[in-house]
């Protein structure tokens, strides 16, 4: 079987498209690279959506954490402590245990039946956990950045007559992002790496549709040789991490474009990596 054929058969296997049976014998390097690459789709999916949703949640949490109202501040503090203080590994386990407890038939709310069984599936359940997790870590970053927004900036905004939402959107928020961005980049890298835990310890793989580590451990289990499949995953991850750093660097340059001399390369001040 040629390598092009293998890519056609297994390129989208992780989504359930293509050949149903995974290779069983005569494993080629091409098969391993293709299938593990196909699993990478899930890693990218989890990372992208968790970062997207987590970003907005984190902004809200960071604001709640700075609030003087204890009804807002205390829950935000508790949430951040809980998710930053425990291993993701255990969060996945507990979340899965909790999500499968939801009734299969769905929950009745005001006479409407809301289906809940999809929540226990990896694509939804693991995404929720990852989102909450990254939100907690990023909120801590954002909070630190909010606290270091220069006083003069805020005073200047007030002098222009900006209040509330306008002040936040046009002054506080951009400055916060600019300050938090290097550590937020680190957080994004960590989150991307954490997506490998989804099928490894948390959620069951459905119809052998898993992430890159799932397929790598499948191959390692079939060939009994850990020295091919795992380095392939490592290679993919190094490439993706580099791409991610590049992408965040572009955003960083945009955030800093008004500052003279700030268009230089992003420097990682790893203060606030997890």
């Amino acid at each position: 079987m040629s390598c092009a054929q293998t890519i056609l058969d297994y390129g989208l296997r992780s989504l359930g498209i293509g050949e149903r049976l995974l290779p069983r014998s005569d494993f080629t390097l091409c098969q391993q690279v293709t299938l593990i690459g196909s699993g990478l789709i899930w890693n990218l999916y989890f990372a992208f959506f968790a970062l997207l949703f987590g970003f907005f949640l984190a902004t809200g949490l960071a604001l709640a954490k700075t609030s003087t109202n204890p009804w807002l501040r205390k829950p935000a503090d508790g949430f951040i402590f809980l998710f930053r203080g425990s291993p993701l590994f255990i969060q996945f386990f507990l979340a899965y245990e909790a999500l499968v407890l939801l009734p299969r038939a769905g929950v009745e709310i005001f006479g409407l039946t809301v289906a809940t069984s999809w929540l226990a599936k990896a694509w939804a359940g693991a995404l929720i956990v990852l989102t909450l997790n990254t939100a907690a870590y990023s909120a801590q970053n954002f909070h630190g950045a909010l606290m270091s927004v220069p006083k003069g900036d805020i005073e200047a905004a007030e002098a222009y007559g900006m209040t509330g939402w306008t002040k936040f959107r046009r002054v506080l928020w951009p400055t916060m992002l600019r300050l938090a961005w290097p550590s937020y980049t680190n957080e994004a890298i960590f989150l991307f790496h954490a997506t490998t835990l989804v099928f490894f310890s948390g959620f069951p793989a459905f119809q052998q549709r898993g992430d890159s580590l799932y397929y790598a451990s499948y191959f390692a289990g079939q060939t009994f040789n850990p020295f091919v499949a795992y380095p392939i995953v490592a290679g993919y991850f190094i490439l993706c991490t580099l791409a991610l750093i590049g992408l965040f660097g572009i955003v960083n340059r945009r955030l800093n474009r008004h500052l003279p001399g700030a268009a230089r390369r992003i420097r990682y001040r790893p203060q606030v990596i997890r």
Binding site: L22, V100, S117, Q208
Partner: peptide, 25 residues
């Protein structure tokens, strides 16, 4: 099971397999 027509759900240990049967997963 991968070779039969059934939809396969994989768990790392037997406890989770039994839990999945009980909760209807």
């Amino acid at each position: 099971i991968a070779e039969t027509g059934a939809t396969m759900l994989e768990f790392p240990n037997i406890d989770q397999v039994l839990a999945a049967i009980r909760n209807g997963e």
